[in-house]
């Protein structure tokens, strides 16, 4: 277990004035270089987990280690360098008066030399395809564009871990795919670890591992294959079933020969083709 970049041990957390635990005795290791998707209904504790990982809130009980550093009030600034967060609403994380200033903000704060800074701002914005907007003011951008700039701001800091808190939920399909593709490439080339809190099950299906949260507890953990076998149980948890699985089920119930529930459309098409041409 030496290559866990994040270790969450028996963490519980309660918001002021609330009687229920937002997180209840959660233990979780996040492995170096993995893409971990965290899914769960609204209020299941996903976002609380994100806040704890970034030191915006402190656990009531238990401990969190990030890249070997115990997360405390003293170390929070060091751990934040390791974990870059992108939130759902980009308006809440804009500080610069232009797109490039905004991306440069974090770099300035970290004392990156100017020449390198200019370079990193440029590359990050290219990666999110916003390099044509360098001098635009953020409030002239649409929601999706703003979010891409926010992601560039994080990319520029080259953290070890990138934490997406429903960061693509406001983007249109192409924007979403571009961003996820960017993060995928970044994960490969920089050996980054990706933690994605999401409602998008198609996205989760492509993760290495999925955690299902329910009522503040870690409900289930497994590969996408394992998790989507939960089937109707997911619906009861307020979640959904990916389209290819739904389609597989429905076809099967009509007597069309399908031997399992497929996670991708390609596999399902291939299966249908095989059973069709075997006739």
């Amino acid at each position: 277990m030496t290559d866990a970049v994040v270790r969450i041990e028996n963490v519980s957390f309660k918001y002021d004035g609330q009687s229920d635990f937002a997180l209840n005795n959660v233990s979780l290791h996040i492995n170096d270089g993995e893409w971990l998707a965290i899914v769960g209904h609204n209020g299941s504790g996903k976002s609380t987990m994100a806040k704890l990982l970034n030191g915006l809130q402190t656990p009531s009980e238990g401990s969190i280690q990030i890249c070997g550093i115990e997360l405390t009030e003293e170390t929070v600034w060091d751990t934040r360098k390791q974990i870059g967060m992108v939130f759902q609403n980009p308006d809440n994380q804009f500080v610069g008066s232009t797109v490039q200033d905004d991306v440069a903000f974090g770099l300035e704060n970290n004392g990156v030399p100017r020449e390198e800074m200019v370079q990193r701002v440029k590359t990050s914005l290219e990666k999110v395809k916003m390099d044509k907007f360098l001098d635009q003011e953020p409030h002239h951008l649409s929601g999706g564009q703003k979010q891409r700039v926010a992601i560039a701001g994080v990319l520029a800091l080259r953290p070890k871990i990138i934490l997406l808190d429903e960061a693509t939920s406001m983007l249109d399909p192409r924007g979403r795919e571009e961003v996820l593709q960017t993060i995928r490439e970044l994960k490969e080339s920089n050996q980054m670890t990706v933690v994605s809190i999401t409602h998008d099950l198609e996205e989760a299906a492509k993760a290495d591992r999925i955690i299902v949260m329910n009522k503040g507890q870690l409900y289930r953990e497994g590969t996408p294959e394992e998790i989507f076998q939960m089937d109707e149980e997911l619906v009861e948890l307020g979640l959904d079933i990916p389209f290819p699985v739904k389609m597989s089920k429905l076809l099967k119930s009509k007597g069309i020969p399908i031997n399992k529930h497929y996670l991708t459309e390609e596999e399902l098409v291939a299966q249908l083709w095989t059973s069709h041409s075997n006739k």
Binding site: P257, W273, H276, K279
Partner: peptide, 30 residues
Amino acid sequence: TFHVKFSKTCVTLEELTEEIHRLFKKVGEL
């Protein structure tokens, strides 16, 4: 994949299941 054209553009899962069912029926599977 099948080099066919279904009778209509399906907008629900149920409609599409019907079409696929018909396709399989044609080859005598069902």
